[in-house]
Design a protein around this nucleic acid. Structure first.
Length: 298
DNA sequence: GCGTCCAGGTCTACC
DNA sequence: GGTAGACCTGGACGC
């Protein structure tokens, strides 16, 4: 099945795909030769659908589905997930207006940058974020790949991220030795169990009416989610008032603004303090600016 | 080949 | 509320 989805004029598929590292982790995939973005989605019926997207036409997304047929309700659900993952409904016009006022950030509006790719669920985003902490990117890829292969599902060679109950049914030993989560294993297991038992509802974080400070505190109450992880998860629910600094950002900031000299987080905080509630997005785009000159940044 | 260091941090214990 | 030390893993680095 082929579908066309209308998107806002300022939406750019590849800027969104390469907004951060998630596009390199399953259930996302990139076909560089065909210039297609792949994603596998689980519908509430349990059906698994693989999509391949091309964004060559401005204002339109061309979608190819792995299915021969799909009922209209299922198609509607699929589109809804896609819009959420690609942040198609996010209104960035205010942000772009503000960006145009900063000479160093005019490129942001011109290139359609600023939509940060997210997973089908907030649970998946949170577990992946824990898997980025205190390790190299290659280890993050290994942990997420192992979670999908060992506990998720597969269809047609396409991996799907495990549900909370799939992880909850495993054990700390399995997560340590097979999935290679290391000391993160008890954190991920406890989080998955609390979500599976409906003690925590990560999906509600996306529409929470709490203030950002309160939501930040709630995210921090999950073991394994510290200031870095909470700050970046807030960005994935559309709140950009925390920076979510890690050593990679620190190094990039130092190269861009301090000639490579070591910088403290307080210095970085001060640098973006004048950017208001969108400072987290200004910060992230600043340190990833060199990605936007590349066809495939990684 | 082997030991050490540290990375896209966080927790706990202790002050 | 601030800080030291421990923590899994694996790749980079020095010897």
């Amino acid at each position: 099945v082929k579908l066309n989805l209308a998107v806002p004029a300022d939406f750019d598929l590849w800027r969104t795909v390469y907004s951060h590292g998630w596009c390199a982790l399953p259930p996302f995939s990139i076909d560089k030769e065909e210039r297609l973005f792949g994603v596998t989605v689980r519908l509430t019926s349990g059906r698994i659908v693989h999509l391949r997207l091309s964004g060559d036409r401005r204002g339109m997304l061309a979608i190819r589905l792995s299915e021969e047929k799909l009922a209209s309700a299922a198609t509607k659900e699929l589109i809804s997930h896609l819009r959420s993952m690609l942040r198609i409904g996010d209104d960035l016009s205010g942000f772009y207006k503000e960006a145009l006022a900063h000479p160093d950030f005019r490129w942001v509006a011109e290139t359609g940058a600023g939509r940060l790719l997210r997973s089908q669920t907030m649970f998946e985003d949170a577990v992946k974020m824990i898997c980025t902490t205190n390790c190299s990117w290659s280890l993050t890829e290994s942990m997420v790949g192992n979670l999908c292969r060992e506990l998720g599902e597969q269809k047609g060679g396409h991996l799907l991220f495990p549900r909370p109950r799939d992880i909850a049914a495993s054990s700390e030993k399995f997560l340590r030795t097979k999935v290679k989560l290391g000391y993160r294993a008890p954190f991920v297991l406890e989080f998955a169990r609390r979500v599976a038992e409906k003690e925590i509802d990560p999906e509600a974080w996306r529409s929470s009416t709490l203030s950002s400070d309160e939501l930040f505190a709630e995210l921090r109450s999950v073991k394994g989610i510290g200031p870095y992880a909470a700050g970046n998860l807030l960005k994935l629910v559309g709140r950009y008032d925390y920076l979510g600094i890690d050593s990679w950002c620190r190094m990039k900031f130092s190269g861009i603004h301090r000639k490579g000299r070591a910088v403290s987080d307080r210095t970085i905080e001060r640098h973006y303090a004048g950017f208001g509630p969108m400072k987290g997005l200004f910060f992230w785009l600043d340190v990833t600016r060199d990605w936007y000159g590349e066809k495939f940044p990684f």
